[in-house]
Design a protein around this nucleic acid. Structure first.
Lengths: 245, 245
DNA sequence: TAAAAATAATATTAATACAACAATAAAAAA
DNA sequence: TTTTTTATTGTTGTATTAATATTATTTTTA
């Protein structure tokens, strides 16, 4: 028995990953490509987020988890449902209409948008049938539907959330250096941070565990590796009531 | 021509108001009442949030605005779309099933939840055909569907947001005292705040305009009235990049 | 008119956190 | 051994917060 899809409700997933080499926050996108049958003219050639319709008898969260597992093979990722996009005219540009026609989307669909944080090195793009690719969030290619807007809203939410929730560790390997942590903050927030002040502040945190290991295979002084302890974080976490307006 | 509703997509609205007398954050709820036709046995008698289905050709935001206008007569309210509730089993308790049957809800509906901030004194409950009533958010009555969960998630979001966005002024009259402002913060955050420190901190803010007016009709030393200038706030607003984890 | 009652309004200090700044140490590579 | 590269460390001034009690102003009451 094939599970029924709900035709007017879908989930779109913004997958964020951090590239330590280019120091860039990236988004995972799929190609959207269509040729005409007659003369092989290229009708649509741009990119989209990954998404799918919700199935009957499946929670929206489950839809998002399923889509991500199918795309990346990964489970247990940080996931945030951040906004619904339901403008009746959200599929109104020319390419979207051509695409919708070829795919038999003809009714109004609202989409529930999630973002995911993944450790880039854990995603295997080579052996992936969907051929997703990473693109810098600050230099996105041409995108279908309202997906540029969706990505930018996800990014804004991530930015705000990163300031007071320890979600940034989801983007780093299990073992990381203080400098790498700073790189991610600088990249996401788009600001420069004084290394001395940052280091001093973070080194006081009990939830950063200093390992008995240093970097290997680097052509310089290798730096100290740390890991993040979610357990300790949650134990010492205190809700802040500091009014900052 | 009657506008078509989208049968499986609805909007639910959590309306927050602050009662200065009881110093309570309240939620506006509707009665849900049903008798059996045979013996007038009471089948359902509890409360629900206000909500309605989205119409074709209407954005989700417009649905929420429309529902609120119909309920309160008010427009231009602070509005936040904060979460989608789409569990296939969200209408699974006995009373919900009886109700759904009587109203011909028989398919899975997902609801997009908003919260609104209103100035309690601007809402006229007397001449309102829907007979909404205020209930303290910390002492809610029996609620239908998953509405208790919806309210609690709205409250959590409001709490977090009130710390770094000037949304609290939406709950106060245009002219207010520093003490009233403190009352709202204490009530929403559920903490006590030292009046001396709070007052000193807030009095330095340029966006709080001291009026040439004091309270009238109070049996005590009348206190100074202030207003909030959104314009000034936005001019002097600086994005914070302070990492607080 | 004076006293009482109630709440508004205000100051100081110690502790903590932040911002701004440059020099030294350690390891690998040449 | 020297060079190169990056990791690592400290100080000081400023701002913010937290913790504390008293005085001032107005209405009400006697």
């Amino acid at each position: 028995m094939v599970p029924q899809i709900i035709p007017n409700i879908s989930v779109d997933c913004v997958v964020f990953g951090f590239d330590a080499n280019t120091k860039s926050l990236n988004v995972l996108l799929l190609d959207r490509y269509l040729e005409s049958e007659e003369n092989h003219e290229i009708l649509v050639n741009d990119h989209v987020l990954t998404g799918y319709h919700t199935l009957e008898n499946e929670t929206i969260d489950d839809t998002a988890t399923r889509v991500l597992r199918e795309l990346t093979g990964l489970d247990n990722l940080y996931k945030k449902q951040f906004k619904v996009f339901g403008d009746p005219n959200r599929l109104m540009n020319e390419k979207d209409l051509i695409w919708a026609k070829s795919e038999n989307f003809n009714q109004r669909t609202i989409t529930i948008a999630y973002y995911f944080l993944v450790k880039t090195h854990e995603v295997d793009l080579e052996n992936n049938q969907h051929k997703p690719k990473w693109f810098p969030v600050n230099d996105l290619p041409e995108l279908g539907f309202d997906h540029k807007k969706v990505i930018n809203e996800a990014y804004a939410d991530l930015k705000a959330k990163s300031l007071f929730q320890p979600i940034i560790f989801e983007l780093l390997p299990d073992k990381f250096t203080i400098k790498e942590l700073q790189d991610v903050y600088e990249c996401i927030l788009g600001v420069e941070i004084d290394n001395r002040n940052f280091r001093r502040k973070l080194l006081t945190k009990k939830y950063l565990i200093e390992l008995n290991e240093k970097q290997v295979g680097v052509s310089k002084k290798p730096s100290q590796l740390f890991m993040f302890s979610k357990d300790i974080y949650q134990k010492i976490y205190k809700e802040s009531y500091l009014i900052s307006i």
